[in-house]
Simulated assay, not measured.
Amino acid sequence: MKLSEVRDILKAEVLFGEDKLDREVTSACGSDFMSDVLAYVKNQALLLTGLVNPQVVRTADMMDMKCIAFVRGKHPDENVLELAKERDMVVMSTPMRMYDACGKLYAKGLGGEE
Rank of each mutant, 00 (worst) to 15 (best):
L51Y: 07
L47M: 08
D22L: 09
A39P: 04
A101E: 00
M1D: 05
D64H: 12
L21E: 03
M34F: 07
G17C: 10
V80G: 04
D100W: 00
A84S: 12
V41H: 04
D36Q: 08
M63Q: 09
A60H: 03
A12D: 06
I68E: 00
V6C: 05
G109I: 14
E113V: 11
E86I: 00
L110W: 11
R72F: 00
I68F: 07
V52T: 15
L51F: 12
A107S: 14
N79W: 08
R7F: 04
E78Q: 15
N53C: 12
M63D: 00
E113W: 11
G112E: 04
V71C: 10
P76S: 11
L38R: 04
Y99M: 08
L38C: 07
V91D: 01
D36G: 00
A12R: 02
I68C: 06
V25A: 04
D100R: 03
S35K: 07
M62H: 05
I68H: 06
F33R: 06
L110A: 10
P95W: 00
E18A: 14
Q44L: 02
E18Q: 15
A12F: 02
V41Q: 09
E5P: 01
D61K: 13
L15H: 10
R23L: 13
E18S: 14
Y40A: 05
E18C: 10
L105K: 03
K20W: 12
A84H: 05
A28H: 05
G73T: 01
C67E: 04
R23F: 06
L47E: 02
D61R: 11
M62A: 13
L46S: 04
A28G: 01
E82V: 09
E18L: 12
L105Q: 00
S93W: 02
L38S: 03
